[in-house]
Amino acid sequence: MNDARPTSWLQLANPAVFNRWADRLLGPLVIVTLGLFAYGLYGTFFLSPADYQQGDTVRIMYIHVPAAWLALFVYAGMVFSALGTLVFRHPMADVAQKAAAPLGAAFTLVCLITGSIWGKPTWGTWWQWDARMTSVLVLLLIYLGIMALWRAVDDPLRAARAVAILTLVGAVNLPIIKFSVDWWYTLHQPASVFRLDGPTIHPSMLKPLLIMALGYLGLYLVLLLVRMKTELTLRRIDRLQRLAAGIPGERA
């Protein structure tokens, strides 16, 4: 049994094979993630300097910017899964997609909340209708819509396909939304614009930022595997219950 190596993605379609690989990966992944967070947080508070303009509030960047990156990364992964569901009918694709959506929403929420807390000392308000915050807010709404559609449709296979189509439609629209919001913002530009991104970021800040981003990525992968295992277990429970209820034509 232990010699089963997934030589192709198709073999990972077997839940048992997937579970075995997930279990093998989870332990090391948790350790790496913890290490990254420990080093990243140490770098954030002790190694990186305070910004000459913003002072120490710049330390919020190290949890805010990686959350924004992950919010987009998770969506990209969901687009990939959506293609897997619709084109290749890969059985694990919709499991991955269902597991990913709430995680993407969580990272988006972290991005918004830390951005808002960062905004108070920097802009003077908790919420500024600035282009990036607004785009992220729309992204959160799309995530919430996807999660709502998952809950609304009972049959998991149908739900998976409907969500996959919605994910792809969202993927086509997201760049347009981003463009339109940027365009809208340039028309209403307030007097002082605060910019952090761009090449101005100092290397001493970049390193902890990248390590925190890797930590976020590790956390995402761990949670994704755990949630996929949960979903597979729930589906097996469902099958066994049907079997126990004596519904004909069902195999365990």
């Binding site: 508070f45 002790f46 305070a50 002072g55 120490d56 509030t57 330390r59 919020i60 807390i117 960062w118 108070k120 000392p121």
Partner: peptide, 10 residues
């Protein structure tokens, strides 16, 4: 770290 005026926000 220098617990400045914005420590609460951080």
């Amino acid at each position: 770290i220098d617990p400045g005026a914005h420590a609460g926000f951080i």
